[in-house]
């Protein structure tokens, strides 16, 4: 019968070697000596204590770790995206699309963008867009319902969301584009967003 392999010696010392192979150790002087050496060394190593620190140490340790990770960045970017619901994404897409379109193809006020006008006129239940006097003042903006809706939605749009929706917008681009809209454009965008909200069941 062949001598025990290194794995088998470990199994033998730990008492998990099958009895057939274990029987070899009883008859083989070399294997028995090797097994005894392993067993003695294991016993000697096992006797070395590792003292438990004071119970007070653990709270102190946790505080140290907490302080050490305080300046660290906690979250992975993809986690926020994974947690996104479809509705904010759709809204992000709508805002990003419209804002990017306006930013790239600035339309002279007070003309309604043709694409937007088509959408509005072909949408059932959407009133015709009233004629606009041109870009409004700040006080007008504060009372503008469409502006409030756009601001609320745009403020909740993270760049990561917009990127996830497939739109490459630069920081501040949405704010700038929406801020430069005429009242008519904001009204159209507001209606688009309301339609999107209704369609998404929000």
């Amino acid at each position: 019968m062949t001598h025990l392999s290194s794995s088998e010696f470990v199994d033998y010392v730990e008492g998990t070697l099958p009895s057939g192979r274990g029987a070899h150790v009883q008859t083989c002087v070399a294997c028995r000596a090797q097994a005894e050496t392993l067993r003695e060394t294991l016993a000697r190593a096992s006797r070395i204590d590792a003292p438990d620190p004071s119970p007070l140490f653990w709270d102190h340790f946790s505080n140290r770790v907490r302080d050490a990770i305080a300046p660290e960045r906690p979250a992975a970017p993809w986690v926020g995206l994974r947690a996104l619901r479809p509705i904010p994404l759709a809204l992000a897409a709508a805002v990003a699309t419209f804002a990017t379109f306006l930013a790239l193809h600035r339309l002279p006020a007070p003309v309604v963008p043709p694409a937007a006008a088509n959408i509005v006129s072909s949408s059932p239940g959407v009133a015709a867009v009233p004629p606009s006097p041109g870009p409004g003042s700040e006080s007008d903006l504060a009372n503008d319902e469409a502006w409030n809706l756009i601001s609320a939605v745009a403020s909740g749009v993270e760049l990561e969301e917009a990127h996830a929706a497939g739109f490459g917008v630069r920081p501040g681009e949405i704010d700038r584009a929406v801020g430069e809209m005429t009242p008519v454009e904001r009204t159209v965008l507001g209606r688009l967003l309301q339609q999107e909200l209704k369609r998404a069941g929000a």
Binding site: S62, R66, I69, A70, P74, A75, V79, G80
Partner: peptide, 10 residues
């Protein structure tokens, strides 16, 4: 933790 709740790491 990944969502930003550091107390979870505690």
């Amino acid at each position: 933790c990944l969502a930003g709740r550091k107390e979870a790491f505690d």
